[in-house]
Simulated scan of single mutants.
Amino acid sequence: MKPYNIYISGVGGQGIIKTSTVIGEAAMKSNMPVVMSEVHGMAQRGGGVSTELKIGDSYSPIIEKGSSDILISFEPVEALRATPKISNKTSVIVNESSIYPFNLRESEISYPDIEIIIEELNNKSREVFVVDANKIAIESGHPLSMNMVMLGSATAINGFPLKKEIIVDSMKANLPKNSLDINLKAFESGFNFVKA
């Protein structure tokens, strides 16, 4: 099976690693080979975090330049940082809520307007879905469910290789029981947003 390449980017504390774990275990539950790599960077100081997953036959989790099938970015500037991994065949899902990197706050460099970021992503990818994942997460019951909003959005993309039901099973196995209802609601809301 030709690998389906998933690149996830964001900032430390947004639940990127947990999201990748849910995807990876869902792939295993689907009897699909999967490999994963993670980069923590300066996560503990609000720095960039990324994970790379390949679902299908592959010897390395590292996604080659321009070969992501999907980019899921929890933060807009981190989506820009990931553009070397995307092409005009890549679907992009980006959370429109920004987190100012600590090093940007202390400099004279300004954070780019979201419109500029989206325009750049539109120029380089097949399709871009801009999701107000933070707002949807709050409406679902808790701001920390934002990562499940993004996962639901990704699951709704045409060609995503994992069935919704298997992702939900993996969520049930990997997320705390006391927050599961909120996370499931967040996932469903993200899924419905993209499908609509």
Results as ranks from 00 to 15, higher is better:
16 I>D: 04
16 I>H: 10
16 I>M: 01
18 K>T: 15
18 K>A: 15
19 T>F: 05
20 S>E: 06
21 T>N: 12
22 V>C: 06
22 V>P: 00
23 I>Q: 07
23 I>K: 03
24 G>R: 02
25 E>S: 12
26 A>D: 03
27 A>V: 05
31 N>G: 09
32 M>P: 08
32 M>C: 13
32 M>V: 10
33 P>V: 00
36 M>S: 14
37 S>L: 13
38 E>D: 11
38 E>V: 07
39 V>A: 11
39 V>G: 10
40 H>V: 00
44 Q>I: 08
46 G>I: 05
46 G>Q: 02
47 G>K: 05
48 G>H: 14
51 T>V: 11
53 L>F: 04
53 L>E: 03
53 L>A: 06
54 K>M: 13
55 I>R: 03
56 G>N: 01
57 D>F: 10
58 S>P: 00
59 Y>L: 13
59 Y>I: 09
59 Y>E: 12
59 Y>M: 13
60 S>P: 02
60 S>F: 07
60 S>I: 06
61 P>T: 04
62 I>E: 09
62 I>D: 04
63 I>C: 09
66 G>I: 08
66 G>K: 07
67 S>V: 07
73 S>W: 07
75 E>I: 01
76 P>H: 03
76 P>G: 03
78 E>G: 04
80 L>A: 08
80 L>Q: 02
80 L>T: 04
81 R>Y: 12
86 I>K: 06
86 I>S: 09
86 I>V: 15
87 S>L: 10
87 S>R: 00
87 S>Y: 01
